[in-house]
């Protein structure tokens, strides 16, 4: 559990609480006992070399990946085999993927309306209103009638962010949202994410965009080899990384 969460003394312990979480893929141990507590409204950036378990960690939070050991509690709901709990958690947790994962057979608008209608039970007119308002916020409302394949990568990722927002999630997970983008499109997506962060939503973001981390993160978590090696404020982490592994990593991503 993080120092911050313990200091805050909340009995809940946080909106996401992971303790001793393990995950294996065959013989490969992807997570080796992760303990992490995220406060409501906190912005967390997770970084680390590839294969360190960052993506696996956040994918466990909405059970896109099933953890093997330890416990994960999201919004007071224990994630176990029970489908009702899983669905409850997924209603409160939005996710943005590296490869966008928009639904290619639906228009941008339909992408954004689907889950609010099916999961939240909104009527089509209400869902459309919500969808348009978020598409406007990511400045892409004029493309609402297009199909995802007709948009650029940056535009697609902004739609994906809007789609997740339409469910009005309490927690947003972002799994390397800019890694699949052409360099000139990274900025528009980062700006959207920064705006999102200003809303006070809980954000957990896996990214190598250290500028974003500096600007937005309350806490940076550095992972390597399936464990959390180091965590601290961006200030601490970038100024004086405590471990050699973090220093090595930073020297590679900050040119």
């Amino acid at each position: 559990m993080s120092v911050r969460a313990m200091e805050s003394g909340s009995s809940e312990g946080g909106t996401v609480v992971m303790s001793a979480v393990t995950k294996r893929f065959g013989s490969f141990a992807a997570l080796k006992g992760i303990g992490l507590s995220v406060d409501r409204g906190e912005k967390i950036v997770i970084c680390g070399p590839s294969g360190s378990g960052k993506s696996t960690l956040i994918r466990c939070i909405n059970r896109i990946e099933k953890h093997d050991g330890g416990s994960i509690v999201v919004e007071g709901c224990l994630l176990d085999h029970r489908l009702t709990n899983i669905e409850k958690v997924r209603r409160e947790v939005g996710m943005v993927f590296q490869s966008f994962n928009l639904f290619p057979h639906m228009t941008v608008l339909a992408n954004c309306m689907l889950a609010p209608m099916l999961v939240r039970g909104l009527k089509a007119a209400e869902a459309e209103e919500v969808a348009i308002s978020y598409l406007r916020r990511v400045r892409i409302a004029d493309q609402a009638a297009k199909y995802p394949s007709q948009l650029s990568g940056g535009q697609q990722q902004r739609v994906a962010i809007a789609r997740a927002m339409c469910m009005k999630p309490k927690i947003m997970l972002l799994d390397e949202p800019t890694s699949a983008l052409d360099p000139e499109m990274v900025k528009e997506v980062l700006n959207t994410m920064i705006e999102l962060a200003g809303d006070g939503m809980t954000m957990i973001c896996v990214t190598h965009e250290m500028g974003f981390a500096r600007q937005v993160a309350d806490r940076v978590i550095f992972m390597d080899d399936g464990t959390i090696v180091e965590e601290g404020t961006p200030e601490q982490f970038f100024r004086q990384p405590k471990t050699q592994r973090a220093r090595d990593f930073l020297s590679q991503v900050l040119h």
């Binding site: 909405n62 997924r90 993927f97 994962n101 689907l114 789609r163 997740a164």
Partner: peptide
Amino acid sequence: GQTEAAHALGLS
């Protein structure tokens, strides 16, 4: 990723 996105959105 299509299944993952659908599940992440809370679809059954």
